[in-house]
Computed example of a mutant assay.
Amino acid sequence: MSLKRTPLRDFHAEHGARLVDFAGWEMPVQYRSILEEHKAVRHAAGLFDVSHMGEFEVQGPQARALLDHLVTNDVSKMSPGRVLYTPMCYERGTVIDDLLIYMRSEEDFLLCVNAGNIDKDLAWIRERAAAFGGTDSDHGAVSITDRSADTALLALQGPAAAAILQPLTAAPLDALRYYHFTTGQVAGIDCVISRTGYTGEDGFELYHASGAAVDLARALLDAGRPHGLELAGLGARDSLRLEAGYPLYGHEISDTISPLTGGLGWTVKLDKAADFIGRAALLVEKQQGSAQRLVFFKTGDRRIVRAEAPVFGAGEAGGAGAGAAGGESCGRGGAAVGRVASGTLSPILGEAIGTALVSAAAAASARSGTAPLWVDIRGTRLDLQLVKAPFVTLKKTS
């Protein structure tokens, strides 16, 4: 099966990108170096093509009510110009997807969903819209329109992002707060200008017509070169989001992991007025406690701890006296207490970092210092030093 392509596919090839299969899309994983692209975003700016993401319009008198029923966060408190991050859950409380909701007016919302979940999300939303007078026409109580093929999305991220973008637009960026958006032209191209991103840095996401993507990318790249702007691929995007402590669907949250288990309890508004899908299951989990916990860790070692690697408690496989990071080899017996969800090398810290889903008891013991968590890297024990996210100091705007 042939891979889908964003409007910038040839632009990426022209600039030396290494293209890979990502969720069925041919996407740039890196240009020159993941390390340098990552550092550029932390110290200057990076430009990402995220046009593979999906966009849906939800419109009509019942649009807000439908969305408040679908997601765990509180849509009723939104106002025009606001952006809301939220999971969307199954009845059992696990996550269908995590998405952004843009409120354009009382009856007009734009959703941004993950690329690999576009078809699943669209079917789920349309099925549940029927109870709210949903229709495919433009005149019903609520309509859902897939704009994914018509829309391209560029992310300009880093402390220099505003300085790069402002000369290209009349929109007053200083007045645009974090998780707010406006509309305007950028380099003569109509855009939704959103002060959001997936790196933990200040930055903007620019939604625009697919046919204008190449012109906009060239204009941003030209404007950004004096500021140290680098083209950045999916490799840096992943290491940046992990340093920032942001979840990735299929890793920290998924159709088997609830937002409470995945550390997103702040997005679950159990007391909001709308009775949302998954509320009953999440209320039980909140009252009884999650069986597993998501923990963030670093190792003091440069060897990457890969996703799905088993996580052990002290004494379970190598004896309580097994060596610390870089120490003696451990045994093979015993049962794991969880698994690694994500892992990478932090270019800023110079050591491996990651997340792990472990039993609630093991997480509590590790946090108290009574029973450290550890992994086996080719026969060598590496202790996991539990930390709070983010891993690095972030400079996003308030």
Rank of each mutant, 00 (worst) to 15 (best):
D150I: 02
G184D: 05
G184W: 11
Y178C: 02
E205P: 09
T145A: 12
L168M: 07
H180N: 05
E201H: 11
L154Y: 08
T182R: 13
L165H: 03
I118A: 05
H139W: 14
D215K: 15
W124P: 03
W124C: 08
A129N: 01
A209Q: 13
T169R: 07
R177S: 07
R177T: 01
L176K: 04
Y179R: 11
D119P: 05
Q185S: 14
Q157E: 14
G140Y: 04
H208N: 10
L206M: 08
N117K: 12
S143R: 14
S137N: 12
D121C: 15
G200Q: 08
H208T: 09
Y178K: 04
T182W: 07
L216W: 10
T169C: 05
F132C: 00
L153N: 04
F132M: 00
T145G: 04
I193K: 03
G197L: 08
F181M: 10
D215T: 10
L206S: 09
D119Q: 15
E201W: 02
W124L: 13
D136S: 06
D121Q: 14
V192K: 11
Q185P: 04
F204W: 13
D150W: 01
T182S: 14
L153F: 09
Q166I: 02
A217V: 06
A163E: 12
G184M: 08
A223T: 03
L154V: 13
G203H: 07
G184T: 09
L122F: 07
V192L: 12
R128K: 07
A217N: 12
P159M: 04
G211I: 15
V214P: 03
A152D: 08
I144P: 03
E205C: 10
L153M: 09
T182G: 13
R218C: 01
I189N: 04
T183P: 07
C191F: 01
L221P: 09
A171K: 03
V214C: 06
G211V: 14
E127D: 12
S194H: 08
I125S: 00
A217E: 07
A187V: 01
F204M: 08
R177G: 11
L156G: 04
A161F: 06
A141S: 14
H139G: 07
D121L: 13
P159I: 08
A171Q: 06
L154P: 14
T169S: 07
D119F: 03
L221Q: 13
A212G: 04
Y179M: 14
Y207L: 13
L156Y: 02
T196Y: 06
R177H: 09
D222A: 15
V214L: 03
G158P: 02
L206R: 05
Q157V: 10
G134I: 00
L173N: 06
G158C: 08
H208D: 04
G184Q: 12
G200S: 08
G203F: 04
R147I: 14
I189K: 03
A217R: 07
Y207D: 04
Q166W: 01
I193G: 02
A131N: 04
A131E: 00
G197D: 06
V186H: 05
V214N: 10
S148A: 11
D202Q: 15
Q185Y: 05
L216P: 10
L156C: 02
D138G: 07
L168R: 02
